[in-house]
């Protein structure tokens, strides 16, 4: 098994070397360097930005927007999801409006948010929050609705009141769904922040990207993309760790050998 793992890692490295090598060699031969730049130049640019703190400065802004929007939208989504999941009549009344708003591509709201909140980081936070809100809300709502009614009846026979039912059954059993929504939201939070920056800003990785493109600096564009990729990877890994910590019973069962 470990031998197989080693081989997989070796093959991954080989694949990476092959792709980067092909890119490096074709640049200036098969395609113009102006359009595709080359890995060595990109690495050089990235390194320069890194040691000058450019990446950290802009990355911190983007991270702040994504994380703040993520928490704001996530918290509101969870609260709304739990509330509407328990209040069936209200949920039915609001259903068509929620669905209408849900089907709207949220980035289309960006111009409106610029008008309302200006081009500062608030606008990116609200845009991100709007996107995350719906994902988390719908998942939480589904999770709360999916709680077994028999389980609730069995708890009520034990003398449980509404508060017990909510905290001992509904919320913990919805948490799997909430986390599915949160994990799904991480890339979207980054999308919200970056799109916001692309539309109007003077800071952030999205700005760095747009600014490089505006100067026809392909190398800069690729270097900014790499920074964004690293941030996305970092955010995804973080939520995975948090998820395992918050739901240890799932980790336990996944450690069992596969069986059906």
């Amino acid at each position: 098994m470990t031998e197989r793992r080693t081989m997989i890692w070796v093959m991954r490295a080989a694949f990476l070397v092959f792709v980067l090598g092909a890119w490096e060699l074709s640049s200036g031969r098969l395609a113009s360097e102006f359009f595709i730049s080359r890995p060595t130049l990109i690495a050089d640019q990235f390194w320069t930005w890194l040691i000058r703190g450019v990446i950290f400065y802009h990355g911190a802004i983007t991270l702040l927007e994504a994380v703040a929007g993520f928490f704001l939208g996530g918290a509101l989504g969870m609260i709304m999801g739990v509330w509407l999941g328990r209040a069936q009549t209200t949920a039915e009344v609001l259903d068509p409006f929620i669905m209408m708003f849900y089907s709207l591509p949220k980035v289309a709201l960006a111009p409106l948010f610029v008008l309302w909140f200006g081009i500062g980081i608030e606008m990116k936070i609200y845009l991100t929050a709007t996107i995350v809100f719906f994902l988390v809300f719908l998942n939480t709502y589904t999770g709360v609705r999916a709680v077994s009614r028999e389980l609730i009846a069995i708890l009520k026979l034990m003398g449980a009141n509404e508060r017990h039912v909510l905290f001992k059954v509904v919320l913990p059993s919805a948490i799997t769904w909430v986390f599915a929504g949160l994990r799904l939201s991480v890339p979207y939070a980054l999308i919200g922040a970056i799109v916001g920056e692309l539309i109007a800003s003077n800071r952030g990785l999205g700005y760095l990207l747009a600014d490089s493109a505006g100067q026809f600096d392909t190398t800069g564009v690729f270097a900014a993309l790499i920074a964004i990729m690293i941030m996305a990877f970092f955010l995804n890994s973080t939520i995975k760790v948090v998820e395992i910590k918050a739901m240890p019973w799932r980790e336990q069962s996944s450690r069992r050998e596969m069986s059906i």
């Binding site: 028999e150 389980l151 913990p172 948490i175």
Partner: peptide, 9 residues
């Protein structure tokens, strides 16, 4: 079905 809570030991 046992209706145990999967998140509790």
């Amino acid at each position: 079905s046992d209706h145990l809570l999967p998140w509790r030991d």
